[in-house]
Amino acid sequence: MVKVLKILVIMFLILIVISTIYFVIEDVLGGSPKPVIRGLGQFFLNNTYNIYYKKWWSGSPETVTAILWDYRGLDTIFETTVLYIAIIGCMVLAYKPLTNILKKYDKEKHGLTLIVKTAVKIIIVLIAIVSINLALRGYISPGGGFAGGSAYAVAPLIIIAGYSIYYLLSMGYSLNKSAILRSIGLVILVIIALAPLMYHGYILQNQMKTHTLFPGYPVNIGPFYIGGFLIFMNIGEFLIVSMEFIMIFILISLYLRGGEES
């Protein structure tokens, strides 16, 4: 039985190798990367920031962010839902009430050497600045809520590695605070998504369209360019992604600690 299974697996892998090689050869001989891109991508490039023909425009020169929140906004909302459900699953499996956990923190016993700790102190400030910059400028430069949130969550991760989980908790990060900030991000997303309905628009409408009455979110506030609702969506998504990642890291490290002590 095991032998038959192994032979089947090997045949399957050989099939995959052959198909991969075929795919690559077909690509090289006039396959996928062509001088002309697909029609859908051409549509997005043409209409994202076309200030001369505003029927389908989204008010953002960053095409990827415009697709993410404007043209395919519902897709992104459901991706956020998948993330939310995954975190709920982690919480259900690994949650433990935190009582007196900070008393276990021993400055000498936990953490790595002084060199590592000093380097961590410098690096976390840089990470925080870069990630907030990524999130807030996501509508005119590469980045956005997802990228900024993922970058911000690296800072608590290296604190856990360099110091310990107890130091992170004594700094003020905690599961409840993260959950509250995550909920604030979700509320921002929901309000921004549902607000056009009150003015006879459709859900997640960003700019003015000819078939609805909603005038669209403002592209400029005074001298500042904000790109419709993209900046609010990026802030909300930044809060959601960063706080959910921090929750995952705190949960996993506390869970591993519990295993050591018992």
């Binding site: 697909r38 859908l40 395919r72 993922s150």
Partner: peptide, 16 residues
């Protein structure tokens, strides 16, 4: 731009 927009969400879901 379309595949890049799909991948940026796929990475986060992958991590979760």
């Amino acid at each position: 731009p379309l595949p890049q927009a799909l991948v940026i969400t796929a990475i986060v879901i992958n991590v979760a």
